[in-house]
C-alpha cells in the first residue's frame, strides 16, 4: 500500500522530468552549454541564453533571504518566548493568515502599493547609502530586482516564522534552565543556547523558503519588470526563470523559443531539487552532532 504510493509518486516525478527533458532536448542540442552561459535572449535572432534568468532567480532569492531571515527569526523568537501569551496568539494567527493570501494578490499589492514606496523612499535611501553607484546605480523606477526580493521576503515569511517558531518552542526546557542556572540572561539564553539548539530546524525553514522563492512565479512576474538581460543594479528591471516562462509561454512561436523556455523549466527543476537534496544532507550532518539520549 505504502510502497505503491511511493512508486506512483516517484513515477510521476520521473515522468514529468522525462517529458520536460524530451521537449527541451532540441534547444539543448542546438545551443549546447552556451544555453546556460549565454546572456542574450532574442527570438528575432534566435539567440537563447538562460544566464540572465538564472542570475535573476538567485538574486531575487538572495535579496529575499537577507530580508526574511532576520525578520523571520526575530518574529519566531518573539512568538516562542518573548511576547505576552495573548499577543503571541494574535500575532501567530496573523502570520499564519499571510500564508493564505494568493500569490497574485501579493503581486497586485507589490505593484500598486509597495512599488510607489520603493520608488519614492526605499530606492532613494539605498541609492544615497551606496552613493548611487554599484548595486544602487541606475534610474529608481520602483519595480525590478529589489521590489521582487522584498515581496518574495513577505511571501516566504509565514512558512519561515511558523517552522522556526515550532522548532524554537521544541527546545527542551532543561536546555533553557541549564543556561539560566549558569547566570545567563534571557537574551543570552535565547541567542547562545536556544537558537543554536534549533539550528537544524531553522535551516530547514530557510531551505523551504529558498525553494519557494526559486519557484514563485505570478507575483514576481508582475513586479520584476520582465527584462531579459543581466541586472547590474538592485533597481534594474530583470526576470527570473519562473517569470520568463510565465510571461512568454503563451506567445512562444519563433523557432526554438518554446523549447528554450522548457529548457529553462528543466534547469529550474534541477535547481530546486538540488537545493532540497543539499539541504537534507546539511541537515543530516548537523543533526548528527546532537547529544546522545541521556
Amino acid at each position: 500500500m505504502l510502497g505503491a504510493a511511493v512508486v506512483i509518486f516517484l513515477a510521476l516525478l520521473l515522468g514529468l522530468a522525462a517529458d520536460l527533458v524530451y521537449q527541451a532536448a532540441p534547444a539543448f542540442a542546438h545551443f549546447g552549454f552556451a544555453f546556460v552561459t549565454g546572456t542574450q535572449w532574442n527570438p528575432v535572432t534566435t539567440s537563447y541564453g538562460a544566464l540572465p534568468f538564472i542570475v535573476g532567480t538567485l538574486e531575487t532569492t538572495a535579496i529575499a533571504m537577507m530580508i526574511a531571515i532576520p525578520i523571520g527569526l526575530g518574529t519566531a523568537l518573539s512568538l516562542a518566548y518573548l511576547l505576552p501569551k495573548r499577543l503571541r496568539l494574535v500575532l501567530g494567527t496573523a502570520v499564519e493568515l499571510l500564508a493564505a493570501v494568493p500569490s497574485v494578490i501579493y503581486g497586485l499589492w507589490g505593484l500598486l502599493v509597495v512599488a510607489p514606496w520603493s520608488r519614492t523612499i526605499i530606492e532613494p535611501v539605498i541609492g544615497f547609502i551606496f552613493g548611487h553607484s554599484g548595486p544602487a546605480s541606475g534610474p529608481e523606477i520602483g519595480i525590478g530586482l529589489l521590489l521582487a526580493g522584498i515581496i518574495l521576503a513577505v511571501m516566504v515569511l509565514p512558512t519561515m516564522v511558523a517552522i522556526s517558531r515550532d522548532v524554537l518552542m521544541a527546545v527542551p526546557s532543561e536546555q533553557i534552565e541549564g543556561a539560566l542556572a549558569l547566570g545567563a540572561t534571557r537574551w543570552q539564553t535565547l541567542w547562545r543556547v536556544v537558537v543554536p539548539h534549533a539550528r537544524t530546524g531553522i535551516l530547514g525553514a530557510v531551505t523551504l523558503s529558498i525553494g519557494r522563492a526559486f519557484g514563485e512565479t505570478m507575483a514576481v512576474a508582475m513586479i520584476i519588470g520582465n527584462t531579459p538581460s543581466l541586472a547590474h543594479s538592485l533597481f534594474s528591471p530583470a526576470a527570473t526563470m519562473a517569470s520568463i516562462i510565465a510571461n512568454q509561454f503563451t506567445e512562444a512561436v519563433e523557432p526554438f523559443e518554446l523549447q528554450s523556455l522548457i529548457a529553462i523549466a528543466v534547469l529550474l527543476l534541477v535547481m530546486s531539487l538540488l537545493v532540497n537534496v543539499a539541504a537534507r544532507l546539511l541537515v543530516r550532518s548537523v543533526g548528527r552532532t546532537h547529544v546522545s539520549a541521556a
Binding site: E174, Q175, E177, G178, L182, G183, P196, R199, V291
Partner: peptide, 18 residues
Amino acid sequence: LLRSRVGMVFQRPNPFPA
C-alpha cells in the same frame, strides 16, 4: 548574579549540544 553564585546540576545531563 544569584545564579552565578548558586549553581545547579540537573537530574538528566544537559550539556549544550551545539
